[in-house]
Design a protein around this nucleic acid. Sequence first.
DNA 1: ATTTTTGAACTGACCAGTCAGTACAAAAAC
DNA 2: GTTTTTGTACTGACTGGTCAGTTCAAAAAT
Lengths: 199, 199
Amino acid sequence: MPTRRERTRQRLYDAAVELIAEHGYSATTVDQIAERAGVAKGTVYYNFAGKAALFGELLEYGIERLAETLRAAAEGRPPLEALDSVVGAELAFIGEYEAFARILLAETWRAGGDWQATARLIRERAVGVIADVLRAAVAHGDLRADLDVGMAASAVFGMVLTVALDWRTLQPARPLTDVHATLVDLLRGRIAGPATQTP
Amino acid sequence: MPTRRERTRQRLYDAAVELIAEHGYSATTVDQIAERAGVAKGTVYYNFAGKAALFGELLEYGIERLAETLRAAAEGRPPLEALDSVVGAELAFIGEYEAFARILLAETWRAGGDWQATARLIRERAVGVIADVLRAAVAHGDLRADLDVGMAASAVFGMVLTVALDWRTLQPARPLTDVHATLVDLLRGRIAGPATQTP
DNA sequence: ATTTTTGAACTGACCAGTCAGTACAAAAAC
DNA sequence: GTTTTTGTACTGACTGGTCAGTTCAAAAAT
């Protein structure tokens, strides 16, 4: 059972993640965050060292959950099935924590900003899980031995992130399984050929 | 031959694109832009209605060049070859206008911010070109008739953008053709199987 | 009793946008 | 051919407002 402090911090996380996803880090004010969290401004500074610290811990917190979700999805599955499972898990995570995913996409690819170092490190935790799965698939003989695992993992991660956010934005009613199926088809190279082949 | 005004505006574009790619839109000040462009602050307001207008026209200008590049790459080629060519063109564009690509990725997927409408419209111009190529491939019988063209186009665009920025960031020395080959392999479903198959 | 939260006032830095004035080249008047 | 005018491009000090962060006494929750 969470303490009062933990509940307050969680409410601040939630408020901050939504506002920053909408307007970006610097355009979001501490007053806005406090107001949306239903908390006095002083509380923000009682719980966090400042705006930057709140955001930093937020990133940390979110990426840890994402990496953990992906790891759990891969665990104990044969390589190729694990890949499908990880893609599904990433989709589901983004479906649930959409605002966080938007922040991840927005703040991670800056050139030399204040968060570049943090963000890149943080992103590697998620991409790393995919790379591990791909490496296992190569070792198992399911994928080409000379596959550039790093680049492929980056491609998979980015592709899923992009598609997922388009999904949430443009056709949120569409079921996850549908999106998942299309992505897996793309990944498995099943888009070639004149007719549908669903064995 | 460009007029003085055109030269000034171009310098302002260049300065703004670099700074915004680094720090984001709201963290970039008009003073910084003017200073990097080697121009007084007033000149910014003489040439543009304001910071927002400068950024808007910048997006417009960049995406027009990108869409045009992609269209030219596809033109007059058989569908599948056109797809490879478009991917190559997107890679080359990002190689050259890296800062703009970072902005595209960072500022396009906000939730309900001030740019959401503009950015989505603008991004669709680029993704639309890829969708057209895919549609042609389907019509030509090269891809499955029931392929979700919109989603696939979004996936291709996002995947290339992600990989390209990782390429520029992590291994800029690597030749474009190398990255291009890996991407095309991924797209064509040639990553499966234990050994390399280069016919 | 102690921890946590409140709410409001305050500060100092920073920033978008303004505006009166400068520079200068090309046209018009002499 | 010299002087005057005009329009365009640019300048940079200034202003009004905003925001992160501070402080603190009182209240509420544990």
